[in-house]
Design a binder for these strands. Sequence first.
DNA 1: TCTGGTTTCGATAACGTTCTCGCTACTATT
DNA 2: AATAGTAGCGAGAACGTTATCGAAACCAGA
Lengths: 341, 341
Amino acid sequence: MTKRLTTIKDIAKALGISVATVSRAMRDTYDVSAETRKLVLDTAAKMNYRPNFNATGLVKSGTHKIAVIIPAITNYYFSTVITGIQEYALEQNYQVMLYLTNDSAYWETKVVRELSLSSVDGLLACITYETTDFSHFEELVEADMPLVFFDRVPESVKTSVVVQDDYTGACMATEHLIAQGYSKIAHLAGPPGLNLTQQRLQGYLDTLKKHNLESYGVIHSGFSDENGREDMSTLFNSISRPDAIFSVNDRKGFGVILWLREQGIMVGEEVGVIGFTNDPTSKIISPSLSTIAEPAYEIGRKSCEVLIRHIQKQSYPTQQISLPTELIVRESTQRKSIGIG
Amino acid sequence: MTKRLTTIKDIAKALGISVATVSRAMRDTYDVSAETRKLVLDTAAKMNYRPNFNATGLVKSGTHKIAVIIPAITNYYFSTVITGIQEYALEQNYQVMLYLTNDSAYWETKVVRELSLSSVDGLLACITYETTDFSHFEELVEADMPLVFFDRVPESVKTSVVVQDDYTGACMATEHLIAQGYSKIAHLAGPPGLNLTQQRLQGYLDTLKKHNLESYGVIHSGFSDENGREDMSTLFNSISRPDAIFSVNDRKGFGVILWLREQGIMVGEEVGVIGFTNDPTSKIISPSLSTIAEPAYEIGRKSCEVLIRHIQKQSYPTQQISLPTELIVRESTQRKSIGIG
DNA sequence: TCTGGTTTCGATAACGTTCTCGCTACTATT
DNA sequence: AATAGTAGCGAGAACGTTATCGAAACCAGA
């Protein structure tokens, strides 16, 4: 295969010293004189030495690798989370292995099960919306494998989790719609099994109740813009039409706006729309989509930080971290629309 | 750290046979009877055995891992390419390690240099637009490390490359603008150092020449929508304004459309716009953006396939693969605009 | 009964590193 | 001058697996 790489032995032989001394000189430890250290480091650089992680990983059972298991990356939220994970991991000298489940519980189980426990130090996971049986994760916890969930988190598995504050975000979204004068509000919710779906739904319901308003419909479906369109057509075929839509995420909100435009319904003026995520496209679509901004990048960094803490000290207590969201007001919730759409 | 995992030795001891036999039984090889094999496999499953990749990687110098080095993933193209890579890799039982350079040549060099050669079997890379010195890659090639470039490829390093047909795509885009009746065509190009920038520019220039048309301006800048806006304002401050824009990518094209809308210029009717990528947002923006679709997913799969071939047989010849693009006509190149914008 | 050929398995040495000893040589203390 | 302490280094085992070599055990043919 590839050429033989220079090892610690080669350096030892070249300098006429033992491998143990070279090894000690490499990681700046005690028990080695400053001059031999420098000598070793210099020749190591000269001979283009790279440590063999398989060997170190074998003796100290710990590879500096973490696995990230995620439904997909072809959307703003997940790709930004991964960016955060990656940056923090690299800073801490960890390497990230990427696994995509494509929102299939089968693949998720397969990946987690087949993932050689010895090949990573810990896992960062975001479950599929299909997953109902979490035994593959529970097995990991039993084996003391560090595991942190983010965004979509199972309630049964007791590990650290890092999420955005979905409940408060949903409250803010609903409050905003009410403050803008909308009162017949419907919610396009996510897949029912997910924790974040429930949190956002609850925030919506609680805020309505607080203002003595009734829900004008809740539909559970997927996260795509196509789902948004479909839900709208069923929603508007009913007798009592809503005058505002709170969508569980932005992409679904795009479908809502597109559908309303096609129907000739004025977005904002006639029907207000608010999303959740702050996908960059929400600025581009017209009318632009009001939304609740999620701290995706910070969620990535934070969950990686928590994981590495768990890896480095097994006594680190389980964390339940919730990061704040932010209301971003754009055109889709303005009563006097700018006239586009 | 984590609990001690069951090893091959444990299985051997439990069955009263040698580790060699267990090892042989694991990978269904000759030299082992069917019954002992079954016995080994059964107890392995019972004891929840997982192979230690560090150990196998140490003895057969080959981890089943590939590194993917990419400028960013927070956009449609890259995240889709990665999806393709990931799926093919998993099918072939390879695991992918992700490295983000954030379009920084410094980080790229650092990652490639520090990447322990022993920790991956091969590399899949897409260079930053800053990179001018490729010695860090050339060192890998000299060390016989399998390396495949995709999308943004350096010309000096002689390795396999997988790209979309940028030249023909640019020709198609320009031909389409001309066919729609535009004649004063400008090109918002990418960073000058990149191969794909040059290819798309050349396709544009050659097509203009073929039709005896002159270029109404070429501006080199980055890939963002902000770059698109900036370029437009400098372009429209000159004396001879273009009546069509060919943008090197879709995101920049979004900036163009947004800027035109703000100026009250009718997109399509007054100024035609075409992009390159087929980002999903190009369907959502209004007017929707005509574009050249890139086979991002296939590029991911194909480049991964080529890399794994290189890993598996060192005699596999260097490949230069170019995948076809496709013209997608939408509203932004229609002379009679639908009236939005 | 002997020879030669399979089939199936065990011992043992690798792979590159770290870790635990222990040994030497030097310095400080009395 | 004798002892204790310490700094610096080497020898060897260990990590979990695969690869090489050889040794049983069995069978067939003469």
